[in-house]
Deep mutational scan, measured.
Amino acid sequence: TFVALYDYESRTETDLSFKKGERLQIVNNTEGDWWLAHSLTTGQTGYIPSNYVAP
Protein backbone atom coordinates (compact mmCIF):
# COMPACT_ATOMS: atom_id res chain seq x y z
CA THR A 1 0.00 0.00 0.00
CA PHE A 2 0.98 3.62 -0.54
CA VAL A 3 0.26 6.69 1.59
CA ALA A 4 -0.90 10.03 0.16
CA LEU A 5 1.65 12.81 0.74
CA TYR A 6 -0.79 15.59 -0.21
CA ASP A 7 -4.50 16.19 -0.76
CA TYR A 8 -5.65 15.69 -4.36
CA GLU A 9 -8.97 16.84 -5.82
CA SER A 10 -10.02 14.91 -8.95
CA ARG A 11 -10.16 16.89 -12.18
CA THR A 12 -11.95 14.28 -14.31
CA GLU A 13 -14.47 11.55 -13.54
CA THR A 14 -11.75 8.87 -13.86
CA ASP A 15 -9.47 10.52 -11.25
CA LEU A 16 -9.58 9.57 -7.58
CA SER A 17 -9.74 12.31 -4.94
CA PHE A 18 -7.86 11.63 -1.71
CA LYS A 19 -6.60 13.32 1.43
CA LYS A 20 -3.08 13.49 2.86
CA GLY A 21 -2.41 10.36 4.93
CA GLU A 22 -4.97 8.22 3.09
CA ARG A 23 -3.86 4.65 2.33
CA LEU A 24 -4.07 3.58 -1.31
CA GLN A 25 -3.65 0.17 -2.94
CA ILE A 26 -2.07 0.48 -6.39
CA VAL A 27 -4.02 -1.55 -8.97
CA ASN A 28 -1.95 -0.70 -12.07
CA ASN A 29 1.19 1.45 -12.29
CA THR A 30 2.07 0.85 -15.94
CA GLU A 31 0.37 4.07 -17.14
CA GLY A 32 3.40 6.32 -16.55
CA ASP A 33 2.79 9.19 -14.13
CA TRP A 34 -0.87 8.29 -13.49
CA TRP A 35 -1.58 5.10 -11.55
CA LEU A 36 -4.87 3.27 -11.08
CA ALA A 37 -5.42 3.06 -7.33
CA HIS A 38 -8.04 1.87 -4.85
CA SER A 39 -8.60 3.91 -1.69
CA LEU A 40 -8.65 1.77 1.45
CA THR A 41 -10.47 4.66 3.16
CA THR A 42 -13.33 5.38 0.74
CA GLY A 43 -13.43 2.14 -1.27
CA GLN A 44 -13.32 4.11 -4.53
CA THR A 45 -11.01 3.43 -7.47
CA GLY A 46 -9.52 5.88 -9.96
CA TYR A 47 -6.36 7.39 -11.37
CA ILE A 48 -3.93 9.26 -9.11
CA PRO A 49 -0.76 11.28 -9.81
CA SER A 50 2.11 8.98 -8.81
CA ASN A 51 4.18 11.85 -7.37
CA TYR A 52 1.49 12.45 -4.69
CA VAL A 53 2.07 9.08 -2.97
CA ALA A 54 4.91 7.14 -1.33
CA PRO A 55 5.30 3.55 -0.06
Rank of each mutant, 00 (worst) to 15 (best):
T1V: 15
T1E: 13
T1P: 07
T1Q: 10
T1D: 09
T1W: 15
F2C: 07
F2T: 03
F2M: 09
F2V: 12
F2S: 03
F2H: 07
F2R: 04
F2E: 00
V3P: 01
V3T: 09
V3Y: 11
V3K: 04
V3E: 07
V3C: 07
V3M: 08
V3G: 01
V3Q: 05
V3D: 04
V3W: 07
A4R: 01
A4N: 01
A4G: 06
A4H: 01
A4I: 03
A4Q: 00
A4E: 00
A4T: 06
L5F: 03
L5K: 06
L5H: 03
L5G: 02
L5Q: 06
L5I: 09
L5R: 05
L5W: 04
Y6E: 07
Y6K: 09
Y6M: 11
Y6C: 13
D7Y: 03
D7F: 03
D7P: 05
D7K: 04
Y8N: 02
Y8H: 06
Y8Q: 01
E9T: 13
E9S: 10
E9C: 12
E9I: 13
E9G: 04
S10K: 12
S10D: 02
S10N: 05
S10A: 15
S10M: 06
S10L: 03
S10Y: 03
R11K: 14
R11Y: 09
R11C: 14
R11E: 12
R11T: 14
R11P: 08
T12Y: 14
T12V: 11
T12F: 14
T12S: 14
T12L: 11
T12C: 15
T12W: 13
T12A: 12
T12K: 13
T12H: 13
E13N: 12
E13I: 10
E13T: 11
E13M: 10
E13A: 13
E13R: 08
E13P: 13
T14F: 15
T14R: 15
T14G: 15
T14Q: 12
T14V: 11
T14N: 13
D15H: 15
D15I: 11
L16V: 06
L16Q: 02
L16M: 14
L16C: 04
L16D: 01
L16N: 02
L16Y: 05
L16I: 12
S17F: 04
S17C: 07
S17G: 09
S17P: 07
S17A: 09
S17M: 05
S17N: 08
F18M: 07
F18V: 08
F18D: 00
K19G: 05
K19C: 08
K19R: 12
K19W: 04
K19M: 09
K19D: 03
K20H: 05
K20V: 08
K20W: 04
K20F: 05
K20P: 01
K20D: 02
K20I: 07
G21K: 02
G21I: 00
G21M: 03
G21T: 02
G21R: 02
G21Q: 02
G21E: 03
G21D: 05
G21W: 05
E22W: 05
E22C: 04
E22G: 01
E22Q: 06
E22A: 04
E22M: 04
E22S: 04
R23Y: 15
R23V: 15
R23N: 09
R23W: 14
R23T: 14
R23Q: 13
R23F: 15
R23S: 10
R23H: 15
R23M: 15
L24V: 05
L24A: 00
L24N: 00
L24C: 02
Q25D: 07
Q25E: 13
Q25L: 15
Q25Y: 15
Q25V: 15
Q25R: 15
Q25C: 15
Q25T: 12
I26N: 03
I26K: 06
I26F: 04
I26W: 02
I26A: 08
I26G: 02
I26T: 03
V27W: 13
V27L: 15
V27G: 05
V27E: 07
N28F: 10
N28S: 14
N28Y: 10
N28D: 15
N28P: 06
N28M: 11
N28H: 09
N29W: 14
N29L: 13
N29H: 11
N29Q: 14
N29R: 14
N29G: 14
N29V: 14
T30W: 09
T30G: 11
T30M: 13
T30K: 12
T30S: 13
T30Y: 10
T30F: 10
E31A: 14
E31V: 12
E31Y: 13
E31L: 14
E31M: 15
G32Q: 12
G32Y: 08
G32P: 15
G32L: 11
G32T: 13
G32K: 14
G32V: 11
G32E: 11
D33P: 11
D33V: 11
D33T: 12
D33K: 12
D33G: 13
W34H: 07
W34R: 14
W34P: 06
W34I: 09
W34G: 04
W34N: 06
W35Q: 03
W35N: 01
W35I: 08
W35E: 01
L36I: 08
L36M: 08
L36K: 05
A37V: 13
A37F: 03
A37Y: 01
A37E: 00
A37G: 05
H38Q: 14
H38N: 07
H38S: 10
H38G: 04
H38W: 12
H38F: 15
H38T: 15
S39F: 02
S39M: 03
S39T: 02
S39C: 03
S39H: 10
S39G: 02
S39E: 01
S39I: 04
S39Q: 04
S39L: 05
L40S: 06
L40V: 07
L40E: 08
L40I: 09
L40R: 05
L40F: 10
L40Y: 09
L40H: 06
T41K: 12
T41Y: 11
T41L: 14
T41E: 14
T41F: 09
T42H: 03
T42I: 01
T42D: 03
T42E: 01
T42L: 03
T42A: 03
T42P: 01
G43D: 06
G43P: 01
G43K: 07
G43E: 05
G43Y: 06
Q44S: 08
Q44M: 14
Q44F: 10
Q44E: 12
Q44T: 06
Q44I: 08
Q44G: 09
T45I: 12
T45L: 08
T45K: 08
T45N: 06
T45V: 12
T45A: 07
T45R: 10
T45D: 06
G46V: 01
G46I: 01
G46P: 00
G46C: 02
G46N: 01
G46L: 01
G46E: 00
G46K: 01
G46M: 01
G46A: 02
G46T: 01
Y47G: 02
Y47V: 05
Y47N: 05
Y47R: 09
I48S: 00
I48D: 00
I48G: 00
I48N: 00
I48T: 01
I48R: 00
P49T: 02
P49Q: 06
P49M: 07
P49F: 06
P49C: 09
P49L: 07
P49R: 07
P49H: 08
P49D: 05
P49K: 07
P49G: 03
S50D: 02
S50N: 07
S50T: 06
N51H: 13
N51L: 08
N51W: 15
N51A: 14
Y52L: 14
Y52C: 07
Y52P: 02
Y52K: 06
Y52V: 06
V53Y: 04
V53K: 02
V53P: 02
V53D: 02
V53Q: 02
A54L: 09
A54W: 09
A54G: 09
A54N: 07
A54E: 13
A54I: 14
P55G: 07
P55D: 08
P55F: 10
P55N: 08
